[in-house]
Amino acid sequence: MAPLFVMGCSEKSTTMQNEVELIFPKGDKITNDNFTGAVYLHNMVVADSSNQNAVGSVTFEPGARTKWHSHPAGQIIIAIDGVGYYQEEGQPKVIVRKGEVVKCPADIPHWHGASADEKFVQVAITGREKGETVWLHAVTDEEYHK
């Protein structure tokens, strides 16, 4: 199943680009082994009993990416800066640009991250009502560059 893309406004201006950089703090560097390269997370909403969605701003430096993984309740990725990649298992890799939205289906293995030459900043909205993220294996350089 192909991801659902919702296209946003692509108008760019220097003022808008500067504002985007200031929307959310970069956050803390992620030090676990679920990522390749430099990735930073600013948790905005932690899932709890009153709302089981987690929301975080994630900054991927050029070439950085997640491992293959899936979300039991799905995920929504909102691209707020840069250029990124998204790929579902068995599907071609797609380019994700600022202003675009990706709807990741529940239980579908996928990965996402920055392009090779540009950072990527996303807001990830992840449902936790059916469980935590299921981390799989690393994305190989061959898969990443394909």
Rank of each mutant, 00 (worst) to 15 (best):
T36N: 10
F24V: 15
T14S: 13
L22N: 14
K12Q: 13
A79V: 07
S10V: 11
I77W: 05
F24K: 09
C9A: 12
S49D: 13
V39K: 05
G74W: 02
I77D: 05
C9M: 10
T59A: 04
N51D: 08
G90L: 09
H110G: 08
I78P: 01
A73C: 04
A73P: 02
T31Y: 03
A64E: 01
V102F: 05
V45H: 14
I80L: 10
I95C: 09
G113E: 06
A64W: 01
E61S: 11
P3Y: 11
E89N: 12
T14Y: 05
H110C: 09
E89F: 11
A38E: 14
E88H: 04
V6G: 10
T15Q: 14
T66V: 02
I23A: 13
I76V: 14
K93Y: 05
D107F: 12
E88A: 12
S49V: 04
P92Q: 13
R65A: 01
V55K: 00
V101H: 06
P62Y: 02
M44S: 04
I30C: 05
K98C: 09
S50Y: 05
P62C: 03
E100D: 13
G74D: 05
V94F: 08
T66A: 01
V39L: 09
Y85S: 00
G84S: 01
V96S: 01
N32K: 05
C9F: 11
C104D: 03
F24Q: 13
A106E: 13
K12A: 11
I77E: 08
M7E: 14
A38T: 12
E19T: 12
A47M: 01
I108C: 11
E21V: 09
I80Q: 07
V45G: 00
E61Q: 11
R97I: 03
K93C: 09
V58D: 01
L22A: 15
H71L: 04
H42D: 12
G27P: 08
G99V: 07
G37I: 07
V94W: 03
V6M: 12
N18I: 07
T15D: 12
T66Q: 01
E88Q: 11
E88R: 04
E61C: 03
T36Y: 13
A47T: 01
S10L: 08
V6S: 13
T59N: 07
S50W: 00
V46Q: 10
V46L: 08
G63F: 02
F24I: 13
E19L: 14
A64T: 01
C104N: 09
P105D: 10
E61H: 08
Y85M: 03
S57Q: 12
D81G: 09
I30L: 14
V39P: 03
I76K: 09
T14W: 06
V101C: 15
K103W: 08
Y85V: 09
T31L: 15
E89T: 08
E89Q: 14
A73S: 14
S13T: 15
R65G: 02
